[in-house]
Simulated assay, not measured.
Amino acid sequence: MSRTQKTVVVLVALAALIAGLIVNQALNGKARFNPEALTAAGIILLPQSRALPEVGMTDQDGQPVNLAQLTGKWSLVFFGYTYCPDICPTTLAQLREVKRQLPEQALERLQVVLVSVDPERDTATQLKQYLAYFDKNFIGLRGSIGDTQTLANALSIPFIPADTRKPGYTVDHSGNLALIGPDGRQRGFVRAPFSTQKLVERLPDLLEHD
């Protein structure tokens, strides 16, 4: 067999292999996501998922919320507060832009949740008005400082409660996001500061999975 013939055979075999992979992917319905690509986008997956603690929260409409209700969709959970001067408005604006650029199928499987680390000032009304400025579908949660710390520590995104006796106080908190799966368990983090474009590129790979 000549070198040209061998080359043709190799190319035909390679084409058949690629075609087989495409057919297999189509038959299986979904491609597996690439953890390395997710990590490069700041999305860190846990080796094992974590259960969320049972804590009492209310939403921006003043309705009680059980964290077990955070199911059926992937959730990006951010700990912040409405009087935050920098990290919070920047992060929420980025998340609004991420949602704006995601394909519709991915968007339907994602929700953004802000958990207030300043329940003293973040009333339900305050949360609702603030979040509506960014996205009316963003969810706001507030609870006691004790319950909020329990949740933040369980998700490994701790914050330092402020001295609320000081006027104009600020709250030290992380810019990381907790990643909650459709089963209501923590699957990982999104590391701050994150790239809007990289999240837009990589989140759909993750959101198609359960």
Rank of each mutant, 00 (worst) to 15 (best):
S2P: 15
K6A: 12
K6V: 10
V8T: 05
V8A: 12
V9D: 08
L11K: 04
L11D: 07
A13S: 14
A15P: 03
A16T: 12
G20C: 03
A26D: 14
L27F: 13
N28P: 15
N28C: 10
N28I: 07
A31T: 15
N34C: 04
N34A: 06
A37Q: 11
T39K: 13
I43S: 08
L52G: 02
P53R: 01
V55I: 08
V55E: 01
V55H: 02
V55R: 04
T58I: 11
G62C: 10
G62T: 07
P64T: 10
V65S: 07
V65K: 02
L67Q: 05
A68V: 02
A68Y: 06
A68I: 01
G72T: 02
L76S: 03
F78H: 09
F79W: 08
F79D: 06
F79R: 06
Y81Q: 09
T82S: 08
D86K: 11
D86P: 05
I87D: 15
T90N: 02
L95V: 05
L95T: 04
K99T: 02
L102Q: 01
A106E: 04
A106Y: 06
V112K: 02
V113T: 00
V113S: 01
L114P: 05
L114D: 11
V115E: 06
S116F: 06
P119N: 02
E120V: 12
R121N: 10
R121C: 09
R121V: 02
R121T: 06
A124E: 07
T125W: 15
Q129S: 09
N137L: 07
G140Y: 10
L141H: 00
L141F: 03
R142Q: 12
A152Q: 11
A152P: 13
N153L: 14
S156R: 13
I157S: 03
P158G: 12
I160K: 10
A162V: 12
K166P: 12
K166V: 14
K166E: 15
P167A: 09
Y169V: 09
T170V: 15
D172C: 07
H173C: 14
L179F: 08
P182E: 01
D183Y: 00
D183R: 05
G184Q: 00
G184I: 00
R185L: 05
R185A: 11
R187E: 10
G188N: 03
F189R: 12
F194C: 03
S195H: 04
T196E: 08
K198Q: 15
K198N: 14
L203I: 05
P204N: 09
L206G: 06
E208Q: 11
